[in-house]
Write a protein that binds this DNA or RNA. Structure first.
Length: 271
DNA sequence: AGAGGTACCTGGCAGC
DNA sequence: TGCTGCCAGGTACCTC
């Protein structure tokens, strides 16, 4: 579920419901996520006011007095707001009870997600300190990406999915951005011209912006918790379309594996 | 330093 | 119906 647009959609979805509220209690049913939920997290959060909800890459950052809760949704995680009591299912690992009767519930079947705490400046946290720029910021530009790719032999698709190069570009949007830029996903990162990196930077920004506008590829109603098909899914030009005609030229979309990830491209349009 | 593989987990699905 | 194997939107960490 969560690539950057999904995480940003989550951030925007929960913010109006939790900003300014007081954390009354944390109910941890399953502490074994990617890393164990810290034992002291409950004590760190209880009684604190939520001051800010931000995002760095795919990390959600919930700032309270005295520190920051760092949440990652992993492969299958989701957050939703419950206004009415609802029994917890087997994958509902954490509930955050807030003032005014609001509940923030974390669900994550595969448990690749994370709930961590830091009382230091959040950008100094080891998970965040060496991340690349935000793809929608001005720091992520043609010059930066082209320079970062010099002499790199890795294929361009895993290159742009590397969070130390740029954050937030997951498998779906990497495929889509490379298609829009006309770049073959297996091409060595160091063998792409500056001009073509200009196209790629613009494509990454465009595809992420459009996906955020449409609420991500999977869409969630944060209040009711009902899942509904993400509107961006119908905009996908390559992802999951193996054998289907390229919407640009009609040639069949091909599927290969790069860095153990499914990769989709048009052999006619992408070089 | 860079490249590639492994690990963490569960659920769903294709194929037998 | 049930088993097996493979796949899944992420990413830190290990080895070479």
């Amino acid at each position: 579920m969560p690539e950057l647009p999904e995480v940003e959609t989550t951030r925007r979805g929960i913010e109006p419901h939790i900003l300014g509220k007081t954390i009354q209690r944390l109910d941890i049913r399953q502490p074994r996520l990617r890393w164990p939920i810290p034992k002291q997290l409950d004590a760190c959060l209880t009684g604190k006011h939520i001051q800010n909800i931000s995002r760095r890459g795919k990390y959600l950052l919930i700032t309270v007095t005295g520190g920051t809760l760092i949440i990652h949704l992993g492969m299958s995680g989701s957050l939703r707001i419950l206004k009415h009591r609802q029994a917890a299912g087997p994958h509902d690992h954490v509930d955050m009870q807030l003032s005014g009767g609001t509940l923030l519930r974390f669900t994550d079947p595969r448990r690749f997600g994370a709930w961590l705490w830091t009382s230091d400046p959040v950008d100094d946290h080891p998970l965040l300190s060496s991340l690349g720029p935000e793809p929608l910021s001005n720091d992520f530009d043609t010059e930066y990406l082209h320079r970062s790719a010099q002499k790199r032999k890795v294929a361009v698709k895993p290159f742009i999915m590397n969070s130390h190069i740029v954050v937030g570009v997951g498998n779906i949007y990497a495929n889509e951005a490379l298609f829009r830029a006309g770049i073959h996903p297996a091409r060595a990162a160091g063998r792409i011209s500056r001009q073509r990196y200009g196209l790629l930077v613009a494509s990454i920004k465009a595809v992420l912006r459009e996906a955020i506008e449409q609420g991500g590829t999977t869409l969630r109603d944060f209040v009711s918790g009902e899942d509904s098909p993400g509107y961006f899914r119908q905009s996908l030009l390559t992802y999951g379309r193996t054998g289907a005609p390229c919407k640009n030229c009609g040639a069949p979309i091909r599927e290969i594996r790069l860095g153990q990830r499914s990769t989709f491209y048009c052999g006619h349009c992408q070089h």
